[in-house]
Every structure is written in C-alpha cells, then in structure tokens.
Design a protein around this nucleic acid. Structure first.
Length: 122
DNA sequence: CCGTTGACGTCGG
DNA sequence: ACCGACGCCAACG
C-alpha cells in the first residue's frame, strides 16, 4: 500500500464505535473524549453525527455525553438516555450527570479497576 | 467536488 | 444560568 493515506471511508466511524464500546457500564465519556480516542481530537461534532446515524445495537451510545457532564442528545429521546444511565448507576439531575468527573471513563485507566461502579464519590 | 448538516466545544455577553 | 456566535470535522446528497 504505497504509504497510502487512504483512510477508508467510514474508518473514523469504525474507530468511534470501537471506542464507545470500550466504555464500561456505569461510566461515561464525552464526545470529545471519543473523538480523541478515534484520532481526531476536535471532531466531537462528527462523533455525535456518527452515533446519531449508526444502528449498531452493541454500541452503548448512551454512555457518551456532552462536555462538563451535560446529558447531550439521544435521537430526541433524551429521557431514554437518562434512564439508561441511571439504570447503570450513573446519577443524573435535570439534564446533567452528578459526579460527572468521578464516573468519567479515561482510556488510560487501568482495566480491571472497579470499572462498573465507582466505590465512592470523593 | 462542493455545499449542507449536526446526539459538539469554547468563549463572550 | 441562559443564549448566541464561531470553530471544527466527518458523513451525506
């Protein structure tokens, strides 16, 4: 492949979905976080578009939230997104996630470290 | 190939 | 806290 810069169309999309699938239950990541993991730190918006369009059922897109812990969108059913999050143990208040920084998933985090539920907020 | 579309992010008022 | 403006980037028609 002659050093092709040929990024197959949809390659970014594929990386985004893969990154989202890595988010453990009860944890969240921002659109910007996912964009960075997918190799385009400033493509938060594009990430939103991809998650909006994808029909991949195994991708937990409800774990992707907006900056600062805002819930963000979910195909118009933001209440559904909140419900799914709460169901996994992520508390919400209004359109915001409580203890956002505490449950925020970071890719650098060691795997196996109580990923599902945060032991304590503080 | 170019213009449009947005489940975003950041800053300013 | 709320709203508007601008930037940024990939998918789509």
């Amino acid at each position: 492949m002659s050093g092709s810069t040929t990024r197959g169309a949809g390659d970014f999309e594929r990386r985004v979905l893969a990154a989202v699938r890595r988010i453990p239950p009860g944890r969240v990541a921002t659109y910007g976080d996912i964009a960075a993991l997918a190799g385009a730190p400033r493509a938060a918006r594009a990430v939103g578009n991809i998650l909006r369009r994808t029909k991949d059922p195994v991708t937990p897109c409800h774990r992707v939230v907006a900056a600062g812990g805002a819930i963000g969108g979910y195909g118009g059913s933001e209440s559904m997104k909140r419900e799914l999050l709460r169901r996994e143990g992520a508390e919400t208040r209004g359109s915001r996630i409580t203890h956002f920084e505490a449950i925020r998933w970071r890719a650098a985090e060691r795997r196996g470290a109580s990923s599902s539920v945060v032991r304590r907020y503080g």
